[in-house]
Design a protein around this nucleic acid. Structure first.
Lengths: 216, 216
DNA sequence: GTCTATATAGGGATAGAC
DNA sequence: GTCTATCCCTATATAGAC
């Protein structure tokens, strides 16, 4: 972590923009709010970014890049297929927890909440990467009965929604949704869903003893 | 289903507004688009609703009301606790499938995408109703190890994301996401997650034979 | 109850001094 | 590279005829 005063204005704008785009959406965010968040005048933003749309795309690109790197690293860092899948799942949860705003923006992307010009290309590539890997494994075992895509989409929805939306919807339910307990809880749930879902396909032993969610 | 020409203009406005608010969000939706969807002039909207915000709230209220009625009906229509929980899960999936736009709007609500005045009161009440029921059952078995709230939030995220966001994100993956096959698939996955998650608490036998997702 | 015309405000973007 | 001042457009909302 570097001293905030040492990072360039461009970076501080990106950060403030990410925060606001996440909570208000593209159309709902006002440039003067972003400027205010940075502590600068609205007009100054245009020195760093050509337009609001350009700024949004920069935020989006950063998110895509980070996601891709994180997931690739998880995939490369583990050895066996089972370990890779576990690493992938945990890395995703960790990523969401570490960057809930970014996650929210990517979720918004999946709502069609994007400026006119933007495409879903990047996200599609990243999801494709994950699915390709899992399907590769699946093909080797010859099992065709699991829909990897549906499972992936379901788990993403589960994890992302839990950490980004639940706090807004029912703030009283999870005092601090990002605390270690909750993270562990969701990680366990996600891992279980993934592994049970893929058990038959990947010859993973089903983890399901009737769910005992151990206290921390 | 009534003839479209027989429903009042107010209802047709609500419907067009729901569609647009769902896909573009509150801030991203223009009143003239809604008017165009109805086939009427922009100014005419103000005869039926005092303001854009008022219209949005009406759409939201309708969604809340329908959700509450649907879930209450599912709860009342089943006998044993296990059947009630299954009915609840299936009813939720069916509701999402039948009204993806409404679902998207409620998801947006959980993003904080609401006009200044709105509150999350209604949604909180509905979620509370479900949780209260499940926790009631849980208390009778004395098991304290499952976090019903986390499970509920997770499943909602999984189901809602699958049907509303996945089609936008990766349209190529699910030719028709709302078709019977996909619905069955998700229903099975959701039911499994719920029942495995609650198995220990409700003395439900764990369903987990290593997941075999039967072809239709 | 719907229309045309218009008022008004606010937001994105630019000009140009410093 | 940041500021102040301003342009210009669009979106909500209103007025008032039909």
């Amino acid at each position: 972590m570097e001293d905030a005063s040492l990072v360039g204005t461009r970076e501080r704008i990106l950060k403030a923009a990410e925060l606001l785009f996440a909570s208000r959406g593209y159309a709902g965010t006002r440039l003067h709010e972003i400027a205010h968040g940075v502590g600068v005048q609205k007009a100054s933003l245009f020195h760093h970014f050509a337009s609001k749309e350009d700024l949004y795309r920069a935020v989006l690109d950063e998110g895509h890049h980070h996601s891709r790197v994180t997931l690739e690293k998880a995939l490369d860092g583990a050895d066996t297929p089972l370990e890779k899948i576990r690493a992938l799942t945990e890395a995703y949860v960790d990523m969401v927890v570490a960057h809930p705003e970014r996650t929210k923006i990517l979720l918004r992307e999946s709502f069609g909440d994007v400026p006119p010009g933007a495409s879903r290309h990047e996200t599609q590539q990243i999801l494709g990467m994950v699915v390709d890997f899992v399907e590769d494994q699946r093909r080797q075992t010859g099992n065709a009965e699991v829909d990897v895509r549906a499972l992936l989409v379901g788990v993403i929805g589960m994890v992302a929604f839990f950490f980004t939306s639940a706090p807004v919807l029912v703030p009283a339910w999870f005092a601090d949704p990002l605390d270690a307990d909750n993270v562990a809880r969701v990680k366990r749930l996600a891992t279980k869903v993934v592994e049970d879902g893929l058990a038959a396909s990947l010859k993973i032993p089903a983890t399901t003893t009737p769910t005992k969610v151990a206290a921390r």
